[in-house]
């Protein structure tokens, strides 16, 4: 049987070159959204096509790839993207955070601290942090050009006026290198501090919206807040039911029809290894 053969990592070289140029510009202007062509991928837009294109442009034969979906290595999106690159690039894959050189992620940053030499690739549904406040892209480009982020601060202020606190739990806007307000992708606000002066490279790809942006290592990434209402990320007040962890981000699982809940680590690799080290509840 003759299998259809693709170029290494699926994308053609011309497309990779365009993405590579966008990535270098994105690193040079931290937090600024760089437009790119965004090709059709063999899955629907909204399922991680931006992240996959970034991964395809970056990945090499020696890379070890980890893919997570909300922290888990074993959910559909993570499994199929990992298998995809196993097939079209023939790279080694892993679930271990510290073994990976390239980590494609949907909506989480691993609990295991990242190190130099690792590249994070984020799947981004909506790269424009101002989109709920200003529907026109021509206008948001202008606001970014002028560093005019008043509407975002007013939104956060109105949250406090109405609810007593900033109500954003995920996709919490950050100020990068003191210049651009950026969407950190829908990671929980709990993960935002991990971006600040991280030793790893962080690349963001939005396929449907055709934008690439980046945070270089050791770059200031500050979650927006007010002096009298400091940034306070939300986390369930519970311990992981599997490993007993109290300092990780927890998923809430409803386990019966009377509303009983359990909390377990969202990062499956971290939780599994903690249990393997004999630290169960």
């Amino acid at each position: 049987m003759n299998a259809i053969s693709y170029n290494f990592a699926y994308l053609d070289e011309q497309t990779k070159r365009e993405i590579r140029r966008a990535l270098l510009k994105a690193l040079a202007i931290p937090g600024h959204q760089v437009p790119f062509a965004s090709r059709e991928m063999p899955l629907a837009r909204g399922w991680g096509t931006g992240g996959m294109q970034v991964t395809a442009a970056v990945i090499g034969r020696d890379d070890v790839l980890k893919v997570i979906d909300q922290g888990a290595d074993d959910t559909t999106n993570a499994v199929s993207i990992r298998q995809f690159f196993g097939r079209v690039a023939g790279v080694r894959t892993t679930t271990r955070t510290e073994e990976a050189t390239l980590i494609q992620t949907r909506h989480r940053i691993p609990e295991t601290p990242l190190r130099p030499g690792q590249i994070m690739v984020y799947q981004v549904p909506q790269p424009e942090p101002l989109w709920r406040l200003e529907p026109s892209r021509a206008e948001t480009r202008r606001l970014h050009a002028l560093a005019e982020y008043g509407i975002m601060h007013v939104k956060l202020y109105e949250d406090i006026a109405r609810h007593g606190r900033i109500t954003l739990a995920y996709d919490y806007p950050v100020l990068v290198h003191g210049r651009y307000v950026m969407s950190p992708s829908p990671i929980p606000a709990f993960d935002n501090p991990k971006l600040h002066r991280s030793p790893a490279i962080h690349l963001f790809g939005a396929g449907r919206e055709k934008r690439i942006y980046a945070v270089p290592p050791y770059t200031d990434v500050v979650s927006l807040a007010f002096e009298d209402h400091p940034f306070r990320p939300w986390k369930a007040e519970a311990a992981c039911a599997l490993c007993g962890s109290t300092d990780t981000y927890l998923d809430e699982i409803v386990i019966d029809d009377r509303g009983t809940r359990r909390y377990v680590c969202s990062d499956t690799d971290w939780c599994e290894r903690r249990r393997a080290q004999g630290r169960p509840v």
């Binding site: 170029n7 290494f8 070289e13 990779k16 070159r17 590579r20 990535l23 270098l24 690193l27 040079a28 442009a57 970056v58 990945i59 090499g60 034969r61 130099p116 590249i119 490279i201 270089p216 290592p217």
Partner: peptide
């Protein structure tokens, strides 16, 4: 090797630009 040599060179440039 146009594919892999370009990838290796790009990764070097990515690393250089990031650091």
């Amino acid at each position: 090797d146009p594919v892999h040599d370009a990838q290796a060179a790009f990764r070097a440039l990515l690393e250089a630009t990031a650091r």
